[in-house]
Design a protein around this nucleic acid. Sequence first.
DNA 1: CGGCAAATGATTATCGATAATATAGAATAG
DNA 2: CTATTCTATATTATCGATAATCATTTGCCG
Lengths: 221, 221
Amino acid sequence: MRAFAEPRDTDLKRTCMRDHIRDALVTRILDGHYPAGAQLKELVLAGEFNVSQAPIREALRELEGSGLVTSERYRGTRVRGADLEEMRQSYELRATIEARAVELAIPCSPAVIAQLQDCLDAMQEALARNEVERYIDHALRLHRGLIEASGNRVFVTVWDSLHFDVRGRLVLRRMAERSSYAPLLQMHVELLERIRAGDAANAADILRRLFRSVAEVFRPD
Amino acid sequence: MRAFAEPRDTDLKRTCMRDHIRDALVTRILDGHYPAGAQLKELVLAGEFNVSQAPIREALRELEGSGLVTSERYRGTRVRGADLEEMRQSYELRATIEARAVELAIPCSPAVIAQLQDCLDAMQEALARNEVERYIDHALRLHRGLIEASGNRVFVTVWDSLHFDVRGRLVLRRMAERSSYAPLLQMHVELLERIRAGDAANAADILRRLFRSVAEVFRPD
DNA sequence: CGGCAAATGATTATCGATAATATAGAATAG
DNA sequence: CTATTCTATATTATCGATAATCATTTGCCG
């Protein structure tokens, strides 16, 4: 017997349950809905998502692999990160990886530069129209593009598995409440200039400074 | 009914099946037993390990989280990495992370320095006695200690989830067949000197050079 | 012969139930 | 009154079976 004989609530069954569950859990962990240390009880979650234990467990194992939760045998799975300190530390890693990625990416093919420029233009336009979510989309696209341009697939995998897409979205939303994106955008402009010029050292340095200014968000209010 | 009524072959049931399975799969992937792209069929593995599908799937999901395999809905799970190029790229990441970790770790508390020195002494002793496996144990202990000393728990998580313990073991064994550990050990000695002196920039640089020399192993024979 | 369609086989995704283990509270002995 | 063992109860780990989907082959018709 299928679990969902009745019509589905929101999303179609485009992907399997465990993917939906994983994404939902990632968001809940990173936005603080589940505080650090909270136990994720399988049957409770199974009830919430209207599925059996199995897909829940698989989603949890995937999160375990990417380090967002830990589990102890017969003691359950607990949330690991997502307080401000963990966010700060994960951004330290992100800065480290992206700075190295841009060094590896330079010199950059015209095609890649065009793609990055496209992201930057879209960011600029979104900012002009004050469309925050669109700005975030394209900013994330730019940064992921940078990682891809390094040619190092392991970098990409790690960037993805730490869910910097979700993290970045949360961080940038938080920034929007405090200050303007304008200085941030300006740094991206300079970054692209340095990339174009083949100036790896300064490009990497701009990225480090960029993330240092983003890190301000992680100060307690 | 339990799957293992008969006495177990090797290891006691100290940990749950999915952990054994995960570790076994990690080793098989990294040592090349499963070539890149190989499909990991759940029921076949279930047969091999004498368990049902569930723990296999969970192990696979954990590996998916740490990026060693990818899976496509209803199409199965395939090995992602572990050719020479993937090893090289993962070591590029390792070098990047460890170099930054040592910068963050400096200045270092006397307790941590003592611990690192202890690893180094053990490495030296093992090398003198030509005990390769012992040397590897302590070298890995030193490097993980370095990551921990950075105080960044995300670094530790990523280092663990990429299974640098298993990778390092394989790489160092391979090195042993080609050249002596002596120059490598010497670099570690210098590294610790720089750490003691609080010289972050040079310590990080030694680490980068160290991994560059390790990377020689990844050249095709 | 060649292309389409249905049937077949292989594999994954999920289910519901059961076994194993830990935790907490009650009962008991000292 | 405290420490200890025992007994529920909650939770995880695993099982065996079924449903859903994909891949391949077969059979039919032009």
